[in-house]
Design a protein around this nucleic acid. Structure first.
Length: 502
RNA sequence: GGUUCCGUGGCCGAGUGGCUAGGCAGAGGUCUGCAAAACCUUUUACAGCAGUUCGAAUCUGCUCGGAACCUCCA
């Protein structure tokens, strides 16, 4: 079976075939570092981290490019003519680049907490002003952009007319029809520079108070919203690359404009497969700054937010996101996250037990017992589900079906002759591959401190001895006081004890 | 208003026309010095109406409800 992905461009699930065999170029829209990332931002980064990891697992050499938007070019409405970053810099009395650095660092910290792999290239908008200017010059030269009062706008209507003939109308990604849009677009201020309402800025003239500004053939200014992604994806991935990812809310206008710009410059639709993750909602509404309902990542990890009942470990968030398909909305609630927390712990504990099993001790012939056949099937399906547009939720469901089997082995409910050594090995191999390498999950209670685990072993030994002497005062004291510290002792069936640290 | 999508049991969520998704919570049991953990068993579903079909949560239509985008947004 081969990988199939849902392509937003065609609205169908399609077989994934890379342009260059063995290689994949993937571009994902990264953060705007004018503020701290929130839970909603976490979703695409985790989603495409899984895509990246899975493609790599399939044997592709993946170049994963994820930009950092560190130039504030957000003033399409022109109402206040101010750069978001420069404005905040004044408020916080920081240099713009100082602010950008601060939030870039915070973002990288959060990505590490989530165990997201770093992309192959993480280009910044400010580092590619030259490329963006060159691209704009090219678009003007081809007649698809015009200068007006120090700003440059993309001529959407001309583009739509010319490229519709090639079957590539403006709006083909988001299913919009330009003529309809012209009628429905709202009245905006300062639109007189544009020939048409649907036109978008490639370069904006900087007003005097604007701190971030660059010299250009059209005077001092800064790049428009969309051009950085076109410039950087072209530079690092070429005229045409395999995958472009991002949130569904970027489909229009951001990705639509990217397609238009790149198509004019490179004569090709930039990406073959467009993958869009859905939103995280809270009380049924999208989490986004315009709704004023965001929970920042640092708040989530610390529990320091009015709507949070507790802190949530980054791995819990990661697991929570993997429990649903990336194209579905995912509703945030304390109850749902707590359920994820419990589920993750249960999964990871079983995972640890499985990894410590000695496969040699199992005596069934492969596939001979019903249980053996079932386990083999469950584990085999991991690949099929991932190949089917990254169905992480279904993979997790299968993993959870393995959990009772693994725990049963530990508790001796599942005898050694119920499973074969080859199936145990296959389970270990597949679980390691999917849990650790592809899903990037780590045990949130893991202790990698040798001295602490030595101390814990000592306490466990003392408690065992106390129990043997029926000195329950001592044994309960050890158990209860450890529990008060957040360390849970668990008596196993065979008289052994294990522990988890909350 | 336009475009697109969704409505599954107490909660979150998979679901490709016929086969128990799964997680959390609840109930009963096993184990245990007690408890926890674990294991076993188990109750609640497919918004409504009509249609297609031998058969629909899954296809079609309508109704109701909700969301995203159309403006910065992951």
């Amino acid at each position: 079976m081969s990988l199939k992905v849902h392509n937003s461009l065609t609205r169908h699930k399609e077989e994934f075939t890379p342009i260059t065999p063995g290689h994949v170029g993937m571009y994902v829209c990264g953060p705007t570092v004018s503020g701290e990332s929130h839970l909603g931002h976490a979703r695409p980064f985790i989603t495409f981290d899984i895509v990246y990891r899975y493609l790599t697992q399939l044997g592709y050499r993946v170049r994963y490019v994820r930009n950092i938007t560190d130039a504030g070019h957000f003033e399409e409405e022109g109402r206040e003519a101010e750069d978001k970053i420069s404005k905040k810099a004044v408020l916080e009395k920081l240099e713009p680049m100082e602010l950008v650095q601060k939030y870039t660092n915070l973002y990288h910290w959060a990505m590490q907490q989530f165990n997201n792999l770093p992309p192959s290239i993480e280009p910044t908008a400010t580092g590619h002003i030259v490329e963006q200017i060159e691209m704009i010059k090219k678009i003007i030269a081809d007649g698809y952009a015009y200068e007006a009062n120090g700003s440059v706008y993309f001529d959407v209507e001309k583009y739509n007319t010319d490229f519709s003939a090639q079957g590539k109308p403006y709006g083909m990604l988001s299913g919009r029809v330009l003529d309809d849009m012209l009628e429905t677009t709202r009245e905006l201020d300062n639109q007189e520079e544009k020939r048409n309402k649907a036109d978008f800025a490639l370069w904006k003239k900087a007003p005097p108070e604007h701190i971030m500004r660059w010299q250009s053939p059209w005077g001092e200014g800064f790049p428009g919203w969309h051009i950085e992604c076109s410039a950087m994806s072209t530079k690092y991935l070429g005229d045409e690359f395999d995958i472009h990812g991002g949130g569904m809310d970027l489909q229009f206008p951001h990705h639509e404009c990217e397609i238009a710009q790149s198509t004019v410059c490179n004569h090709k639709t930039p990406a073959r497969y467009w993958l869009h993750n859905n939103m995280i909602t809270i009380n049924g509404k999208k989490m986004g700054k315009s709704y004023n309902n965001v929970i920042k990542l640092s708040e989530l990890f610390s529990g320091n937010h009015p709507s949070l009942e507790q802190a949530y470990h980054p791995m819990v968030i990661r697991f929570f996101i993997l429990q649903t398909h990336y194209r579905s909305t995912l509703d945030f609630s304390n109850e749902a996250l707590k359920a994820s927390e419990k589920g993750l712990k249960r999964l990871m504990e079983a995972y640890d037990i499985l990894m410590r099993l000695d496969a040699a001790g199992f005596t069934a012939a492969a596939g001979a017992t019903e249980q053996d056949a079932k386990c083999l099937k469950l584990v085999k399906e991991f690949n099929e589900f991932m190949d089917d547009d990254f169905s992480t939720a279904k993979v997790l469901a299968n993993m959870f079906e393995l959990v009772p089997v693994i725990n049963g082995i530990k508790d001796k409910h599942v005898p050694a002759n119920a499973l074969s050594s080859s199936t145990i090995e296959k389970m270990q191999q597949q679980m390691k591959l999917f849990v650790t390498d592809i899903f990037g999950l780590t045990n949130i209670t893991a202790v990698d401190n040798e001295k602490l685990s030595a101390v814990m072993q000592l306490l466990i030994d003392i408690r065992k001895e106390a129990k043997q002497k029926r000195d329950y005062v001592t044994s309960d004291k050890i158990r209860n006081e450890l529990a008060a510290m957040g360390i849970q002792l668990k008596d196993e069936k065979d008289g052994n004890m294990s522990y988890t640290i909350a």
